[in-house]
Design a protein around this nucleic acid. Structure first.
Length: 584
DNA sequence: GCCGTTTTCGGCCCGACTGTTTTCAGTCG
């Protein structure tokens, strides 16, 4: 595999930047950027689309870009890209990563000062050589140095599980201020993206000034990037950028919609608004004339709810998790939005650890904690024998544990049903960690990858397929084995794995640990399209991890998953019938 | 370069903040 989707996506994103720096047609470089964004998020390898002849079905990909993708896939090169690299060095694109530096400044630095690398820019700024360039000054020069320092601090996108609690803490602080009428997290956190670039907060109030003052001076702020009455931005010491907007409560609906995004979803909505004779922005829907000019005399429509915004555009409310301009607006228009799964739909938790391996609580304690959280059945699935580091269970201990689970289940007397299973390792050589006759004695079997995660694609795929084809295995746990941010997904042939799962009827897990969330939106969507059953589990090693469930559900919702697709939303009888049917 | 509840051609979203300016361009989201 020469190129991953993300590699190819990056080439088009780079091309967009190059064209923009050189002042090419705006709509052309926007088209490349849009295509790049679309390619980064596809559920299948581009090679598969190319051999299907469906490249041009990808939104944002037309004939010209499809041709370029095919050229990359077949020759491993792209002549057009090489030509542009000669024009605009890749190192110049790095300069645009600095906050406050865009294409115009990048071009200026190069043409007026011969700067093409970050290091050269930093040296020039330190030497005071930037301040005399047109449109620059001492302050801009200082901001560039700060921006370069901030780049070094940044660690890329932050896992949702780290960004969301940070956002909630700030929101709680702002809510405590006087005259705050509403406060919410918007942006990619609200949409449930697995990783977060920056945090968008929204507050409704008629006294923005003190709220902004608190925001830019609160503890944990490393740098103020902007400070106005409706909009401020700060960089936190944890390396996260946070933006706050304050507006009147009467505009809550348009504002929340606007700042939730995504950008592409909003662009399409604003186009629909124009078609209906309105200009849509964060404060109102304003009537426009045929040329698109706002009619100042005509009354604006203010929306205090998102429902009202969508209704004015002739659409039902679209859940934030779907707002990526990946066909959700068309579904809404046709009245075919999915009934997305909710946390309340989850009845069982099929993946939990105890002190028998590397968990913190006993079988009974875990059961009681799960009951407290509204679960009606759980499966105890400790690690298997080869995973020594996590206290994996020998066959003898596994059977001893089964006796304890049976006893706890009897003691609890139906308060919550406790089943006995395992999270069995798929070993490096593609064999499974327990023999079939042992697996046959368990209520539920998960198979997971934990070791030798750097193997080549063929071997990783072979291991997963071996587990999928074993009739005793019911679920593949955290299928990509990623652990964000330090460990990316294993290199696997998703199409082969999904095809085999669809054939055998095995379930795939959306692991709710916010550092895992294995089947990101497009993959979850692909899975249910193929009829693969899903499970959303907590993989809890302690009671706190049971509260991660909303992250898993959020990820499923992004994949348009409904409760019926998820085996642990089913009542116990239906779930156990499904497991029994698999064993045969 | 993409795309179509009317278009296969002619469109393609919107405003706040900053730093430099004397009225605005650049950047960002």
């Amino acid at each position: 595999m020469l190129f991953t989707n993300k590699d190819i996506a990056q080439i088009f994103l780079n091309l967009a930047d190059m064209l923009e720096i050189q002042g090419e047609n705006k709509f052309k470089f926007l088209a490349y950027r849009r295509a790049g964004e679309a390619l980064a998020d596809l559920p299948r390898d581009l090679k598969a689309y190319a051999s299907d002849g469906t490249l041009e079905d990808i939104p944002g990909v037309g004939k010209a870009i499809a041709d370029k993708i095919r050229e990359l896939l077949t020759t491993g090169r792209l002549e057009f890209y090489e030509k542009w690299q000669a024009e605009v060095p890749l190192s110049l694109l790095d300069i645009m990563r600095i906050n406050g530096v865009g294409p115009k400044k990048a071009r200026l630095f190069r043409e007026a000062a011969g700067i093409i690398t970050l290091a050269q820019l930093e040296a020039a700024a330190r030497a005071g050589q930037l301040r005399d360039l047109p449109g620059m000054g001492a302050k801009s020069e200082q901001k560039i140095l700060e921006g370069i320092a901030a780049l070094a601090r940044q660690t890329g996108r932050m896992p949702l599980g780290k960004a969301r609690p940070a956002a909630e803490a700030v929101l709680d602080r702002l809510r405590a201020l006087p005259r705050v009428q509403a406060a919410a997290i918007a942006g990619s956190i609200r949409r449930g993206r697995v990783t977060i670039g920056d945090v968008d907060l929204l507050v409704a109030s008629d006294t923005p000034t003190p709220i902004m003052a608190e925001f830019v001076t609160m503890p944990g702020v490393a740098r103020v990037l902007g400070h106005g009455d409706t909009k401020s931005s700060v960089e936190l010491q944890i390396g996260l950028q946070m933006d706050l907007r304050v507006l009147p409560v009467s505009q809550w609906g348009t504002a929340l919609q606007y700042f939730t995004g995504s950008k592409n979803h909003n662009v399409k909505l604003r186009q629909i608004a124009l078609d209906k004779g309105y200009s849509l922005n964060e404060s109102a829907l304003s009537p426009v004339d045929a040329s698109g000019t706002i009619l100042e005399d005509a009354p604006k429509i203010y929306c205090d709810s998102e429902e009202q915004v969508y209704a004015t555009l002739g659409l039902p409310w679209i859940p934030p998790e779907l707002r990526e301009d990946e066909g959700e607006i068309e579904l809404a228009r046709a009245g075919q939005l999915p009934q997305l799964i909710t946390v309340g739909d989850i009845q069982g938790d099929l993946h939990m650890h105890t002190t028998w391996s590397d968990g913190m609580l006993s079988v009974k304690e875990m059961a009681l904690q799960a009951k407290q959280r509204g679960r009606s059945y759980i499966v105890i699935t400790d690690h298997s024998r080869s995973l020594g580091i996590a206290g994996g269970l020998s066959i003898e201990r596994l059977l001893a544990q089964q006796a304890e689970v049976r006893q706890v289940n009897a003691d609890l007397n139906g308060e919550i049903i406790v089943l006995h299973g395992t999270e069995m390792d798929i070993k490096a050589d593609a064999t499974l960690d327990y023999p079939d006759d042992i697996l046959a004695q368990l209520d539920f079997v998960i198979a997971s990858l934990h070791v030798s995660l750097n193997q080549p694609r063929d071997q990783i795929t072979r291991r997963l397929l071996a587990a999928i084809h074993n009739p005793h295995v019911d679920l593949i746990g955290h299928p990509t084995a990623r652990y964000l941010p330090e460990r990316e997904a294993v290199d696997m042939d998703f199409e082969a794995v999904f095809t085999a799962a669809a054939q055998t009827g095995i379930a795939l897990e959306i692991n709710s640990n916010p550092r895992r969330l294995d089947l990101e939106g497009p993959y979850a969507r692909r899975a249910i399209e193929l009829g693969i059953p899903l499970a959303i589990n907590t993989d809890a090693h302690n009671p706190g991890m049971m509260d991660d469930l909303p992250y898993g559900v959020l990820t499923a919702r992004r994949g348009r998953v409904e409760a019926r697709h998820v085996i642990n939303t089913w009542p116990y009888e239906q779930f156990s019938a499904w497991v029994r049917a698999r064993g045969t």
